[in-house]
Design a protein around this nucleic acid. Structure first.
Lengths: 352, 352
DNA sequence: AAGGTTGATTGGAACGATCAAAATGTAGCG
DNA sequence: CGCTACATTTTGATCGTTCCAATCAACCTT
């Protein structure tokens, strides 16, 4: 029968408890925990038995303090409830977990004030790095001030305002918004569409600007006109998109197709079209952006641009981890070339 | 011009640096940081100036070590990519952030092995508590062993296998699945439906069992028969639900309504019905469960049960925080009474 | 037999904060 | 002037781990 050397039940078990329990020094137990080859086999076995017996849990905070390292990464997202970012977060967590890091989560709900607060609070936990998808209008100076220069930052999805892209001291992972929207527009043009609108999003968001630029690029290249009333703004969600649908048809010439800011907007627009008796995919062509899960399942299924958010999450994590390995390397800008996925929502214009 | 006492740029600023910078002791700086009334106004101002000047960031890990406290909560979810849990996570993070806690995220992807690994890894960071939505089939013994008895656990959404509900030493926040499904079924019955199927989900999941039980309860109370082929299993997603749709009509009498396991399944089923030329909301009644964002926007909009996942997230956080305040109180089981939201997808049976 | 090498272990000082107790200074008061 | 009271500040130990230098035993070497 084992002697009961278990210390008072309501205290956490530490290295010292284990050391005392099997008559070695704390240092030796520490070596065992870290799998050092320095310890004798017999001792190691004795210590490991004692660790099990007392139900020891490693205190990584204490270790990190002493070693001046960190084993966490802060992940700050402007809208976790959005499936796109939820997928992204899943990918990040997968990759970080695999590398032995823990994810500190922060959700800002598109509020710059909350973003500041969240970043500040997370930084107190001394993360090894930060992955940030900034809130709309978030400012480079502000962010840099609270993050400091010691903690590597990886920016995802959006640029920060007020700092030239070229000399920004952080890495970035972006989607090729402009090329994506251009591909979608070109695809519609190839189908014979001529009156194409750009629908949804807010003009002050950088991703919206880029997508709009891609649309303009394709239209101009094809020599097609762009009417001012073919640019309808709305919040990037289904509800507002459905509500704004009518604005497309106020003035003539009315468009016969729309490149939408993203899938949510596209799905909302399709709903709005149905309610007006216009059948998307037959009477009116629609494209989205993101390729969220519902895109393939809507009626008609949505032609869109795939960015594979979960894979982007993994990629973001890997980029940041690599940066931790070489802090002095040049800041890197990675652009993911989104892929056009053609489905039923894009069609030729109705024959007049 | 201020004298430049800034220490070597590539080291983190500590209390000692600040103390040296304005000729006080570390303790005084610490008091200032924590807003103690003990320090003199003039000193406080001097210290605060120096804090700003050197760009000090608090090291919460060190403080927590000394104070034997923790300022983080682990949030472990079986499927973060699911919008329901993404909303839940947002709510949790909101409430925790407001209370000065930080969220340690872990996603298990329904894998029990990963759940164990993730829990182990997160516990090394000594969270003050754990919010867990367990992977399917996750075992109480296992979980309790890695979490230990010192760290409060709040279980969300699912029960753990292998432990009597009554004497489980943890708190729970559950949805009233049985009542919800009963309400939906009763609603269909009140509309005149008699041949009602239960569609989707896996029979081994506890939430599916509970919902099915509610359905059975309502059917029996109304004296309606339940045909065995009215219970169709499928994975809880749109794709599989659409694929399994046909199974409802293999044998007669075919149902004219279906209570679905959740919204994803219901939306998939509606899609499958469309593909067979059956119009949901006219020829066939459908109800869902969860009230996800798309439910209100589908065609027809979906009658479903609202659980308000973001509010549940906040609630979960609050329950856990309360528990931290009184560790010895009785374990508590909280059940949220989901609410029936009637929309267009539920209808009377077609007149023969 | 003195010194060298190897292998295993250890004591004590860190890491950056907090706490308890003690030490200042500064008045007030009889 | 000595004594207490109060406000403010400091000293030194401590949280749980890791690092560093030192120790010690055993086994060569010449």
């Amino acid at each position: 029968m084992a002697t009961d050397t278990t210390p008072h039940a309501n205290r956490k078990i530490t290295l010292a408890d284990i050391a005392a329990g099997c008559d070695v020094s704390r240092a030796t137990v520490s070596l065992v925990l870290r799998g050092s080859p320095l310890v004798n086999k017999v001792t190691r076995a004795r210590v490991e038995e004692e660790l099990r017996r007392q139900g020891y849990v490693y205190n990584r905070a204490a270790a990190n303090l002493r070693r001046r390292t960190s084993s966490s990464i802060a992940l700050v997202l402007n809208d976790l409830a959005n499936p796109f970012f939820a997928e992204f977060a899943t990918g990040v967590d997968e990759a970080l977990g695999g590398a032995g890091y823990v994810t500190l989560l922060g959700s800002t709900g598109e509020s710059i004030a909350r973003e500041q607060a969240v970043l500040g609070s997370l930084l107190e936990h001394d993360p090894a790095g930060v992955i940030l998808s900034p809130a709309e209008g978030s400012d480079a100076g502000q962010v840099l001030k609270t993050i400091g220069v010691r903690t590597p930052l990886l920016l995802f999805n959006r640029e920060l305002a007020g700092k030239a892209s070229s000399d920004a001291p952080w890495d970035r992972l972006m989607l090729d918004n402009q090329r994506g929207a251009r591909l979608a527009t070109e695809h519609l043009i190839a189908l014979g569409q001529k009156r194409i609108a750009f629908f949804g999003g807010h003009a002050n968001s950088s991703s919206c600007q880029q997508r709009h630029a891609g649309y303009v690029e394709a239209m101009k290249a094809a020599g097609l006109p762009i009417e001012p009333h073919w640019r309808i703004e709305c919040a990037p969600n289904r509800v507002d998109a459905a509500a704004q649908c009518g604005a497309l048809f106020f003035d003539s010439p009315a468009p016969t197709a729309a490149v939408c800011y993203n899938d949510a907007v596209a799905l909302g627009l399709m709903l709005g079209l149905y309610q007006r008796g216009i059948r998307p995919g037959r009477d009116f062509a629609v494209t989205g952006f993101d390729d969220i899960a519902e895109a393939a399942l809507s009626a008609p299924p949505l032609t869109t641009l795939a960015s594979m958010p979960r894979a982007r999450g993994r990629q973001a994590a890997e980029l940041l981890l690599r940066r931790l390995g070489e802090p002095e390397a040049e800041p890197q800008r990675t652009v993911f070339p989104v892929q056009l996925v053609v489905r039923g929502s894009s069609c030729p214009p109705p024959t007049p």
